[in-house]
């Protein structure tokens, strides 16, 4: 269907107007709808956040049984940036990295909705600041591999891997002593 005003572009906005019991319909393209003042030019850029705060509202709705006391939730305030849970709920964004701890008990349902059911990070780890974590991740990977090798009765390779893990664990301990945190 073509836009009623410009007769050129495809219709993307449908308006229904009720006036004194009379129903009128108007079909416009985005651009004409903006020009005629039916649509805010910025409107479309808000859609993602509208959706997001929708996610939050569902979460804030006290129908789920895991929901903690409602009053307590509203009093939660981030000690670092002073963001309240209510604000967070409304804006849909964190104020600082501390917010993640402050609101931690509400985050899993939100993350699950936004990230296809996921709540924990499995990707990259900062190289310099989190050497220790990287070590742990690597060791865990090797351990998983080791189990596979044992299952397949590839004992020689398994022994090699086991030594590698030992070395890594030693390395980890000494670097942790040097003051690398977390």
């Amino acid at each position: 269907m073509k836009c009623e005003v410009c007769q050129q572009r495809e219709v993307s906005v449908h308006l229904t107007n009720y006036l004194n019991g009379q129903k009128t319909e108007i079909h416009l393209c985005q651009q004409c709808a903006i020009e005629k003042g039916y649509l805010d030019a910025d409107e479309e850029s808000y859609t993602i956040h509208d959706l997001l705060s929708g996610f939050f509202n569902v979460q804030a709705n006290p129908t789920t049984k895991a929901e903690p006391d409602h009053r307590a939730e509203h009093q939660l305030t981030c000690p670092q940036c002073q963001m309240t849970y209510q604000q967070f709920n409304k804006i849909g964004k964190f104020g600082c990295s501390k917010c993640y701890q402050t609101f931690s008990s509400f985050l899993n349902p939100i993350f699950r909705r936004v990230h296809s059911g996921n709540t924990g990070h499995t990707g990259r780890i900062p190289k310099r600041k989190h050497v220790h974590l990287q070590h742990q991740r690597l060791i865990q990977n090797y351990r998983d591999q080791l189990q596979e090798l044992v299952k397949e009765e590839k004992f020689e390779e398994a022994a090699e891997l086991r030594d590698k893990i030992k070395d890594l664990e030693q390395e980890g301990k000494s670097s942790a002593k040097k003051g690398d945190e977390l």
Partner: peptide, 8 residues
């Protein structure tokens, strides 16, 4: 949670 960002 990994790298912490303003938007979830």
């Amino acid at each position: 949670r990994g790298y912490l960002t303003s938007c979830p």
